[in-house]
Amino acid sequence: MAGPSGKPDPNAAQRLRLDKWLWQARFFKSRGLAAELIEAGSVRVNGTRVSRPGRDVSEGDTLTFPQGARIRVVRVTALGHRRGPATEAQALYVDLDPRDGAEPLE
């Protein structure tokens, strides 16, 4: 983010639009599809329902959203600079769905 002088502020937290991040992380084929889902109120950031595709996300945020027949819960671990290959996209998040990894803790 730029400060009053127009130069980047090194102390400012890095942020990215929610629709752009979902697209870069390859959850949706287009930013338009991601924006439609967000505008419908189907996405939560840190447990709060959002309806603005321009809502900023940053590292550490937890996103909850439907994808097909599943409800995805992911934690943002990095902000992308481009929409790269799938391996690059998978480095942007940690999947918190217990069905995808180890057994849930009891």
Rank of each mutant, 00 (worst) to 15 (best):
A78Q: 08
D56V: 01
T77E: 14
A102P: 00
A25T: 13
G41F: 07
P85L: 11
A12L: 01
Q90G: 14
V73M: 12
E88D: 15
S51I: 03
V76M: 06
W21H: 05
T77W: 02
A89W: 09
P98G: 09
V45T: 02
L63F: 08
T77M: 03
R55A: 02
L79S: 03
L96N: 10
A35G: 09
E36K: 09
S30H: 04
A91R: 11
S42A: 15
L33Y: 02
V94K: 04
L37Q: 12
T64N: 13
E88P: 12
D97P: 14
W21F: 08
E106Y: 02
F27S: 12
R49F: 05
D100S: 13
L63S: 13
E36L: 05
K20T: 04
Y93N: 12
M1R: 01
G47P: 15
L37Y: 03
A102W: 08
G84N: 05
F65S: 13
T77R: 10
S42K: 14
V94G: 04
V76T: 05
R26Y: 06
E59D: 04
A40Q: 06
R44Y: 05
T77L: 05
L92S: 07
S30K: 08
R15N: 00
L22K: 08
G84M: 10
R15T: 06
L37C: 09
P10R: 04
Y93W: 10
Q24Y: 11
S5W: 01
I71N: 09
R26N: 09
R82I: 07
D56A: 11
F65Y: 06
R52A: 12
F28W: 10
L37G: 06
A89S: 13
V74A: 02
R70I: 13
W21A: 02
R44A: 12
A35W: 00
D100T: 14
A34C: 03
L105M: 07
G80Q: 07
T87L: 09
L92N: 05
Y93H: 11
G54A: 15
F28I: 04
R99T: 14
D95C: 11
L79H: 07
F27G: 15
R55K: 14
A40V: 00
A35M: 02
K7N: 00
R26D: 09
A13S: 08
V94Q: 12
N11T: 05
Q67D: 15
V43Q: 12
A2G: 00
A69Y: 10
G68T: 09
G101M: 04
E103M: 10
W23L: 06
G84H: 07
G54M: 07
V50R: 11
R44M: 14
G68P: 15
D19F: 03
K29L: 14
S58M: 12
P10L: 04
A78C: 03
L96E: 14
E88G: 10
